[in-house]
Amino acid sequence: MENKLNIALVQSPLIWEQPALNRENFSSKIANVKSEVDLIVLPEMFTTGFTMTPENIDAQEGDITIKWMQDWAKEKNAAIVGSIVYSENDLHFNRLFFVMPNGEVKQYDKRHTFTLAGEHEKYQSGSNHLIVEYKGFKINLMICYDLRFPVWSRNTTDYDVLVYVANWPKPRVEAWDTLLKARAIENMSYCIGVNRIGRDEKGLEYVGHSAIYDSLGQQLIFSEKEEVISVNIDKDHLLEVRKKLKFLQDRDKFQLLGVKD
């Protein structure tokens, strides 16, 4: 449908450092997604959980998962996005992949590695934004801790949708809720957050709160349980709001040093 995007958010527990079992789990969930979906969003590190021992994951698993994403994207005729542990040249990345229905792959390395957990010691930080043009929408892709840094997501390129995939634990979930809404309002865009649920190997609890907010901060959908939730977003509505409330025209101009765009 023109100027509309049907989005499915897959909220699930993750099996610790077991890529094959996680792919099997998400396969069963994706298989039941409605055929008219355009974009399927999975959590951060959806094949392993938020592991700080990437050396435990076979380096071949990254490419196996990309092929798995391509197969499902083709099967569902929908784009699929999520981040995984990806290793190359003896380096490790928390890398997001956006896979088109035709198999084309775009990637983004997490800019803000989570120092509280030591992620910066295990994974290479990225320096590039990834904004994908898909079905008439410009989509800006981010990962978890990026949510806390508004300058990195500032809408200087007139994108339409901001996506965060995450493993965001229960003790700080109020910040997750608040910042997703804030990113939508300040950037006058749709903002999507997909989190996991359950407990990880370290005993951390995750309660989901996957959600979509519109450009005025209205919550369109929300979940706290294991399920796939979906909603249509409307670009015409977004453009009408921006035409009426021209806040983006008053934004500050700035340049991020050391960033490649």
Rank of each mutant, 00 (worst) to 15 (best):
E2D: 09
A8M: 00
S12D: 10
W16M: 11
N25Y: 08
L39M: 08
E44S: 08
M45N: 07
G49Y: 08
F50E: 13
N56M: 13
I66Q: 04
Q70P: 02
E75C: 04
K76G: 06
A78Y: 00
V81I: 15
I84Q: 11
I84D: 12
I84T: 12
I84W: 11
E88D: 14
E88K: 10
N89K: 14
F93A: 03
F93G: 01
N94C: 06
M100E: 15
N102V: 01
E104D: 10
E104Y: 04
Y108T: 03
H112L: 15
F114C: 10
F114L: 13
A117R: 12
E121Q: 08
K122N: 10
Y123H: 07
H129D: 08
L130R: 01
E133W: 08
G136V: 05
G136K: 01
F137R: 10
K138D: 09
K138S: 12
L141H: 04
M142V: 07
Y145K: 07
D146P: 00
S153E: 08
Y159L: 02
P169G: 10
R172A: 12
D177M: 02
L179H: 08
L180T: 02
A184K: 01
M188R: 04
M188T: 00
Y190H: 11
I192F: 01
V194F: 00
L204K: 12
E205H: 11
Y206I: 03
L216E: 13
L220V: 09
S223N: 03
H237S: 13
L239A: 13
K243W: 06
L245A: 14
D252M: 02
K253P: 00
F254K: 02
F254C: 01
Q255S: 15
L256G: 02
V259G: 06
